[in-house]
Write a protein that binds this DNA or RNA. Structure first.
Length: 154
DNA sequence: GCCAACGTTGGC
DNA sequence: GCCAACGTTGGC
């Protein structure tokens, strides 16, 4: 069992978009970075939990919790020439990109802002807070996970 | 909109 | 395999 953080731009796909899906479940498409792909393909397992993070928006931060309900399978948006995530180099016979399915567990009672996370010394080693960290899929340690959840009701 | 920090591409 | 040029991410 591993914890993760998954970034999404709310103007593209927000936590409320996920909440409106059937069974609050959807596929997580559009990962086009090898490190992030390797995480979801090789390490993410069914039952893992992840923070849903809003990026590139007025208040970046952690907004909810999702559960991995289907392990990695080929990202079909890469095969669709009309799709914005189309990648001609990904072949259905040998897919380059993968996706998982996530289910919304719950929204947090409040969004925990990036700015607030930065204030906590206990969190200074988080991958998210490292300088220049642009990965859209990041591992979170158990200690960090528990610590952040305690901030929710502070 | 700016721009720093990355990642990727492709010529050589 | 190097590395300059280019594209992207994402906070601010």
């Amino acid at each position: 069992m591993q914890y993760w953080l998954m970034k999404s731009e709310p103007n593209v796909y927000s936590i409320d978009d996920l909440a409106q899906q059937n069974s609050k479940t959807d596929h997580w498409d559009g990962i086009r970075n090898y490190q992030a792909r390797n995480f979801i393909r090789d390490e993410m397992r069914k039952g893992d939990l992840a923070f849903f993070y809003h990026s590139n928006c007025p208040q970046p931060g952690i907004t909810g919790i999702v559960k991995i309900v289907r392990e990695a399978y080929p990202d079909f948006t890469a095969f669709d020439a009309k799709h914005k995530y189309y990648d001609p180099k990904s072949d259905p016979q040998q897919p380059r990109w993968f996706m998982v399915d996530v289910k919304l567990v719950r929204k947090l009672k409040r969004t925990i802002p990036l700015l607030e996370l930065k204030e906590h010394k206990k969190l200074q080693d988080m991958r998210l807070l490292q300088r220049g960290s642009r990965l859209s899929i990041l591992p979170v340690t158990t200690q960090q996970w528990d610590y952040i959840l305690k901030l929710e009701t502070k």
